[in-house]
Each structure stands twice: as C-alpha cells, then as structure tokens.
Design a protein around this nucleic acid. Structure first.
Lengths: 129, 129
DNA sequence: CAGGATCCTTTACGATACTG
DNA sequence: CAGTATCGTAAAGGATCCTG
C-alpha cells in the first residue's frame, strides 16, 4: 500500500509547501509583485515610467528587480533605436500566468482595508497601511 | 464627468496596486507564506513542530514572524497549562481567508517546476530551486 | 533616457547561548 | 518546551555622481 508513497498525505503536503517556496524564491523581494502588477495593468512601460509609477522604489532596486525577472522570463526588455535610446519593459506570456496570484493579492488587500474601516481601527504600526 | 473620479481607470489602477502593497506589507518577510501554508495544511501545531516542519527557519525568525502574524489576527496563540508549558498555534478564521492566495502560489510553483522539466533545463542559479 | 559605480545607513536574517 | 538576548553577516535601500 505504501510502496508508492507519492500520493500519501505527507508527500502531498511537502510538495505543496515546496511549491510555495519555489514561487516565493522567484518572486522574492519587496517589489516584484508590485512591478508585475503595474506591468499587467499598464502594458508596456519605460524605465522612467516604472520609476514614477512604482511609489517608493529607487533606480538601483528597480534595475535589479527587472533583471531578475527578465532572467526568469517573466518580463521582456526591448531597446528602441531612438535618440537617446529608450527601453521598454513588458510582461511575457509566461509572466501573465502570475495574474491569478496578483488578483488574489489585490482582492485580499482590498478586503483587508475594508475590514479595518468597518472595525474603525485607527492606523497604527500594528496595522501597516 | 470627472467631478467624481473614483471610478476612472487611473484611480482603479492605483487602488489595485495599493491593495497589493497592503497585502505584501502584512505578509512581508521570507517565511510568512510558508508558515501560513504549513498551518493551513496541518491545523494546530506547537512551536517545536513548526520549527521542525518549516525547513531552514531558526527559532528567532519563527518567533518574530509568529508575533507579527498574531498582531494582525492571522493566527492564534494558546498557552496550555502543562508542565512544562506548551504553546499551540493555529490559523484564525480571518487567516483562512488567505488560502486562495496560498493555493495560487502553490499552483504556480508546481507548474513552474513542471515547465522546467519539460524544457529539460538544468538547475542553475538562473532558475532557483 | 537608461542605467552602472560608489559609498553609506539600515534592516533582515542566522547561529549560538541562555532562561523560566 | 518556548522562547529571549547577544552578536555578527548579508542584503536592502538611499544618495550622489558618472557614462553612452
């Protein structure tokens, strides 16, 4: 009965947890979900547009995060032959498969904020907004 | 037409991005999704169980992450009057509302790993597993 | 415009040791 | 058992200047 243990509950658990780790490994850092979300909503954007659009990020971090995500084929970087050069970033088809995650994150964040209002909780460190 | 701009596309975009930021603010750090996933799958667990179950985490980080999540009402901490004392952690009803996110993360991670196998990509820094 | 290089500060994280 | 205290490292983040 347990010669093949690939379907026992323990194994399924471990696999699921491992899958979460995989995802978070690729989307680690403070900004990746934010960047993906912005590109999903706006389509193609240039470096400076992203810098303006993503509140709080600096050029150094943006550059690094974009490189990480390009390496993992989540976004595409295109250099245009203008003067001076412009660079466009867009999400790939593969990157778009992240949108269910993004949608759930946005949904949860929205209802979280609503629940704070209902409970009339005042903003504090305890509830970071 | 734009006296009330709460429904124009720009505002909707900003709200969505902000919601993602809210969620990630609460679930920041390397371990929170991992802990939530583990508690969702196992139910109630003690401190030491979590320490064993969550591969790689140390006592300090686990303690800190659990406190963060308790403050935000995602988990419940119960001290049992045993000798020596034992402490049980479980997810709250509110914390369970995170499960759609966890499910999507697990789904994506699973298909990510499958896509690597299909493409016969060998594991490298480029594709962290 | 799109970034890389450099320097500096702060936060995140981890290992070890210790306490009720 | 369930943590806290202490220490040290690594990564995040910001500011400024520089280049093609």
């Amino acid at each position: 009965m347990h010669t093949n243990n690939s379907h026992d509950p323990g194994t399924i658990c471990k696999a699921k947890i491992h899958a979460i780790k995989d995802t978070m490994g690729i989307l680690s850092g403070k900004w990746k979900f934010h960047i993906i979300g912005t590109l999903l909503l706006h389509g193609t954007l240039r470096f400076m547009d992203l810098l303006r659009e993503i509140d709080g990020i600096g050029a150094k971090m943006l550059s690094k995060e974009l490189q990480d995500m390009e390496v993992n084929s989540l976004i595409k970087r295109t250099v245009k032959n203008t003067k001076p050069i412009t660079v466009e970033y867009e999400i790939t088809e593969y990157g778009k498969t992240l949108s269910p995650i993004i949608e759930e994150l946005a949904k949860w964040g929205t209802s979280y904020r609503e629940s704070l209002h209902k409970k009339q909780i005042h903003i504090a460190k305890k509830f970071p907004l």
